[in-house]
Each structure stands twice: as structure tokens, then as C-alpha cells.
């Protein structure tokens, strides 16, 4: 069961109740010019406990923080959106491309792992083909995998939940 948006935000300490719907956030949003994202409405919907978790607009935010910087009431809008997203993911709602990236993380320890092209570029620059990251250190990768298992992340990514995205 998901937590109601208003309750969730309150628990996380977001002062969204004092939003005056002035639109500074929306006017400052680079994404909102090209997408249906309206940050002001997300805050309002959350406040009114509407189902924002199924709202795809949540994922249009580039987390540039411009809205949060300019909010005259000091509401941590982006941090709030991240919290709403996490709840949505825990309901099993994850965009397919994000699920792929999460899978890479589980397998390789990198969201953007090395590929043939990357190896070739490194070689060309006189560098080792693999960087000194988990790519080169298998025990370290094991640590990452174990960590992801302990936090339940593997489960979260593989289990598509009750609701499919």
C-alpha cells in the first residue's frame, strides 16, 4: 500500500502546505516548456492527496532545482518530487528505460558501463582498457551487488509489482 502523497511529504518534512500557487516554479521550469510537467500542479495535487504516483509528469523533471531556488515560500520542490517518485517506484511503477539502467547497475555497478567503443578510446589515449572502478575490481562489484540485495533494490527492480508501468 502506498502512503498518501500529503502524508508522505509531511513525513519527509516538506513545507508544501504553505504553497501559494504563485507559479514561480512552473515559470522557471525548463522541462515544463516542452512537456506537460507543471510543478505547481504537482504540489497542489499532492496537497489534495490526488494520485500523483501514476502521473508520468513526475519523470519529466530534470532536477535542475531552478524552481526550488526561486520558490518564495522555500518549498523543497525537487526533493519532494524525488520522494514522490520513490513512492511511485515502490508501487511498481518504473519506466522501462529506467528499469534497464537499474539492471545495468545491478550487473555492472555502473549506470553507464564500459563498451567496446569506450575501451578503444581508452586504449587510444594510452590508458588501461578498464578504469579503476568496479570494472577492474570484481570483489568491489560483489560488494555493490550485495549492497543492492541488502537494500532490497534487486527485488525492487526485478519485481514489477502489482501495477505494471
Amino acid at each position: 500500500m502506498s502512503t498518501e502523497p500529503a502524508k508522505l511529504l509531511e513525513e519527509e518534512g516538506f513545507s508544501y502546505l504553505t504553497c501559494i500557487q504563485c507559479g514561480t516554479c512552473t515559470g522557471s521550469c525548463p522541462s515544463g516548456r516542452h512537456t506537460s510537467l507543471n510543478t505547481r500542479r504537482i504540489v497542489l495535487s499532492a496537497r489534495r492527496n490526488r494520485d500523483v504516483y501514476h502521473d508520468k509528469d513526475l519523470w519529466m523533471c530534470t532536477t535542475c532545482y531552478q524552481c526550488q531556488e526561486r520558490c518564495p515560500r522555500g518549498i523543497r520542490i525537487v526533493d519532494g518530487i524525488l520522494t514522490l517518485r520513490a513512492e511511485s517506484v515502490h508501487m511498481g511503477l518504473m519506466l522501462p528505460d529506467h528499469r534497464k539502467v537499474a539492471g545495468l547497475m545491478i550487473d555492472k555497478g555502473h549506470a553507464v558501463p564500459i563498451n567496446d567503443d569506450g575501451r578503444a578510446k581508452r586504449k587510444e589515449l594510452g590508458m588501461d582498457e578498464l578504469p579503476e572502478t568496479v570494472h577492474k575490481h570484481p570483489q568491489a562489484l560483489d560488494q555493490v551487488k550485495k549492497l543492492l540485495e541488502l537494500t532490497g533494490f534487486m527485488q525492487l527492480v526485478t519485481d514489477e509489482g502489482t501495477e505494471n508501468s
Partner: peptide, 11 residues
């Protein structure tokens, strides 16, 4: 000037 017309939601 850039703003959201909050009555219509337009930027």
C-alpha cells in the same frame, strides 16, 4: 518576462 499564467497553466 517569463511566467506561468496560473489561471491557464500556460508558460
Amino acid at each position: 518576462i517569463t511566467y506561468e499564467d496560473t489561471m491557464t497553466g500556460e508558460i
